[in-house]
Design a binder for these strands. Sequence first.
DNA 1: CATGAATGAGGGTTCATTCAT
DNA 2: AATGAATGAACCCTCATTCAT
Lengths: 230, 230, 230, 230
Amino acid sequence: MSSQPAPRAPQGERRRRDAERTKAEILDVAQAEFARHGYAGARIDEIAALMRTTKRMIYYYFGGKEQLYLAVLEKVYTEVRAAEAAIDVEHLAPVAAIRTLAELTFDHHDAHRDFIKIVSIENIHHAEHLRKSQALVDLGVPVIDLIERILAAGRERGEFGTGADAVDVHMMISSLCFFRIANQHTFGVLFDRDLAAPEHRDRLRTMVGDMVVGYLTAADPARTDPTVGR
Amino acid sequence: MSSQPAPRAPQGERRRRDAERTKAEILDVAQAEFARHGYAGARIDEIAALMRTTKRMIYYYFGGKEQLYLAVLEKVYTEVRAAEAAIDVEHLAPVAAIRTLAELTFDHHDAHRDFIKIVSIENIHHAEHLRKSQALVDLGVPVIDLIERILAAGRERGEFGTGADAVDVHMMISSLCFFRIANQHTFGVLFDRDLAAPEHRDRLRTMVGDMVVGYLTAADPARTDPTVGR
Amino acid sequence: MSSQPAPRAPQGERRRRDAERTKAEILDVAQAEFARHGYAGARIDEIAALMRTTKRMIYYYFGGKEQLYLAVLEKVYTEVRAAEAAIDVEHLAPVAAIRTLAELTFDHHDAHRDFIKIVSIENIHHAEHLRKSQALVDLGVPVIDLIERILAAGRERGEFGTGADAVDVHMMISSLCFFRIANQHTFGVLFDRDLAAPEHRDRLRTMVGDMVVGYLTAADPARTDPTVGR
Amino acid sequence: MSSQPAPRAPQGERRRRDAERTKAEILDVAQAEFARHGYAGARIDEIAALMRTTKRMIYYYFGGKEQLYLAVLEKVYTEVRAAEAAIDVEHLAPVAAIRTLAELTFDHHDAHRDFIKIVSIENIHHAEHLRKSQALVDLGVPVIDLIERILAAGRERGEFGTGADAVDVHMMISSLCFFRIANQHTFGVLFDRDLAAPEHRDRLRTMVGDMVVGYLTAADPARTDPTVGR
DNA sequence: CATGAATGAGGGTTCATTCAT
DNA sequence: AATGAATGAACCCTCATTCAT
C-alpha cells in the first residue's frame, strides 16, 4: 500500500505479510476455480491467469494442485465452522432455538455457495481429500452438541418427542438447506423454478423451520400407516 | 433395392443387435466412470480399457466425450422417469399416498447412486448439458402433477392445510432423499455416521415420511415465532 | 434415367454402366476435394459424404486414397491432352499460329482451374505420383512438336529469330497462363487485384500473345546490356 | 523491481537469446517440413524429431500448428521483402533497370525455393492464412512503386510504349520466374527437361529479361492479328 | 524470496483402411 | 457386385510440473 515501509516494521515482517496476502489471493481465486469446474476441471493456468502473481507461485506456496485444493477445502470448512460457532441460540426456548438454528443454517447455505459446490465436489471424490485433513476432522462438529442440548431442553419441557437424534436432526436441516442451492441448476431446468431466487427465499426458509419444528413437536411421528386405505 | 433381401436380413439383424449391445455396454461403463470421477476427471481411455472394445468405438458410436456424457445423462434420467411412471399411489388415501411417494422416492435414491452422482456433477457444471438435451427437458415431470392431485385430494378431505405447493413438496422430498446419498462421504467423515448404511435406512425412511406428512397435516405451519423467549 | 431397363440391354451390361457412372461420379467429387484441400488435406469421408454411394465404394473401385488421387491426376491430364489435340493452328501463318496457341492456352487454363490446382499440388509432392503413371508419361507431349513446326515455319519465312527453343517457348506460354490462375489468391491479397476476374481477362490474354510474338520476332533478343548507363 | 538487477541481467539475457535461437530453429525446420508436405501433410511430430527440442516446445512458442505455419509464412515473406528492398536499379537507364529487376527476381526465385512452395501451398488454401496476417498485408509491396517509376522514366524518354501497367509487368516477371521453380517437377517428368538445373539458368534468365524488355519497348504491342492467314 | 523457460506424460480426437458377410 | 460395422495408428494438443538461475 504505502511506498515507504513503516520504520517500526522490520523488513522480514513486511515480506511475510506480502507472502500471506499472496497466499490468500491464490486461495480466493482457486476457490472460485475449483467450485466452478470441479477438481479435475480446474486449471492451474487459469488460476494463475486471474492473479497478479505467476503460476510458479502456486507451486512455491502450496506444492501442487492437490495441496492447493486441500487448502481451499480447509479454508471453506474453517469459515463455516467459524460461522457456526457464532450462533447463539441457547438463551432461546427449545422450539425457537431449533427454528432459529434451521433458519440461520438456511441463510448460511444461501450465502456460501462456493462452500456448497466444494462439498459436492468432495463427495464426488468420496471425501478422499477431506479424510486426509486431520485438521478438519479434528475441528469437530460443535453443532451436534448444540442440537443435543436443545433437544434435551425440549424433551425436559415436554415440548419435543423422545425419539429424535441430534445427528439425524442435523442431517435433516442440512438436507433441506443444501439441496436448494446445490441442485438449483438441474431443478431449475426440469421444473422451471429458480430455487435460489430471492422471491422464493423467505417462503422456503419458513418451510424448513416449520418442518423441523413440526417433526420434533409431533406427538407421535409415525402416525400414519401406508397400508391404510388400500 | 436389393433383389435378395431375405437371406441378408438375419445377418444384418444380428449385427445390429451386437452393435446395440456394444453401445449399451459402453454406456454402462461410461456411467460408472463419469459418476466416479466427474466430467473432466473421467478418462475415455479408462472407459475403453474396462471393455472388450477399443477407445475408437466410443467415437464411432457417440462422437466424443461430451456426447457420451450426454448419452449417460439421458440414460440415467430416462431410467428415473420410468421408475416414477411406475409409481401408483392414486388409489391410496392422501396421507398414505404422500407418505408412500416419499418412501418410494427414498428407496429409489438409495438404489440409483450413479444417478445421484451424475446429477451432482451436472449441477457443478450449472446443468449446461441437461439444458442442451431437449429430449430430457421435454420428458416432463409427471411427478409434479401426481403431487398436485394428492394435495388437492387431501385439501378436499380437510386432511391437508391449504398453503402447500406441489413443487415445494417435491423439493422437500428430494432434498431429504438426495442429501443422504449425495453427501454421505463428507457427512460420514465429519459426523462419523454412515448415512447410506442399511442399519440407518429404515429409521431415516420413516423420518422422511413423517416430516412430509407432518408438514402437510399441520394445523398451522408457522406456529412458532423465533423471537419468542429472547 | 429411365425407370424401365431397356429390354435389349442384358443385366450385366446395365450393371457395368452403373458401375462406370458411379466411378465417374466418385472421380468428379474427388477431383474437387483434392483440388480444394491438397493431397493430405483431402478427406475420404468428405468425398463419400458428397455422393450417393458410400465410402466403402471408393475402396472397392479404386483401392485407396493414393490410387484415387492418381486416377484424378490421370483424368485431368487426359482431359487437357484431349483439348490440346483439338488445337488446329497449322493452317495459320507462323506469327498468327503462335499467338493463337498462346491465347488458346490462356483460355484453357482459365477454364480448367481444378487442373491447375492439381498440378500445383503434384509439384509440391515433387511429381511423385505423376512419375508413377506410365500412362501419363507416355501420353507424350504433342504440343512441343506443334511448336517446333510453327518455329520452323517462322524461321523459314524469316519472321522468327533463330535462337528460340520449342520447350522454352512452351514454358514461357505456360508460365504466363498458369501463374495468373494458380497464384491469384496471394496476388489478390498482396496487390489488391483479382487476376482471375473477367475484367482483366482480355487485356492479359492479349498481353501474353504480345509477349510471345514479340520475343520470337525480335531481331536481336539480348539487345540491352544491364551495365549500360551505370 | 528487483534490488539486484545487475547480476541477473546477463543470465536472463542469455536465456532470452537461447529462447530466440530455439524459436528460430523451430521455424527453419517447420519451413522445410511445410514446404515439403503442404499444410495438412506436415507433421508436428516430424518437425520435433528433426530438432534438439521436443514437440512440446512448438506449442510453447507458437501455440499450434496453424500459428506455426503462419509464422513460417510471415518469415518467408519478410525475407523476400527485405531482398526486394535491397534492389537498387534507379540509377540505371529504364531499359537496363527493368531488365536488371527481372533478372534479380529470377535469381531470387532460384535461391528461395521454400518460399515458392509455401506460396503455392498458400494458394491451394485460397490465401486464407496470408489474409489473416495483417502484418504481411501491411508490409506493402514497394516493388510496384519501383516498377512505376521505371515505367515513367522509360515513357518520358520515349523508350517504352504507353500502355503498360506496373502490376501487369510485375505479374509478368513473377510468372516467368515462379513457374520455372514451382512447376519444375511435373514439367521435368512430362518434357524431360530439368528447368531448375544450372545448365538452363543463364539462358532462361536472359530470356525473361528479353521478354520483358521486348514487351515494353515494342512499338505496337498488338501488332499481329490472329485471323490473318486463315 | 522469486521467476521465465522448459517439459514428460497422457488426453481427446481423426484418419485411412479392412473385416465379415 | 456391394456394404455396414469396426478398427489400428497416429495426430494435434494440454496438463501439471520442474529446472536453472
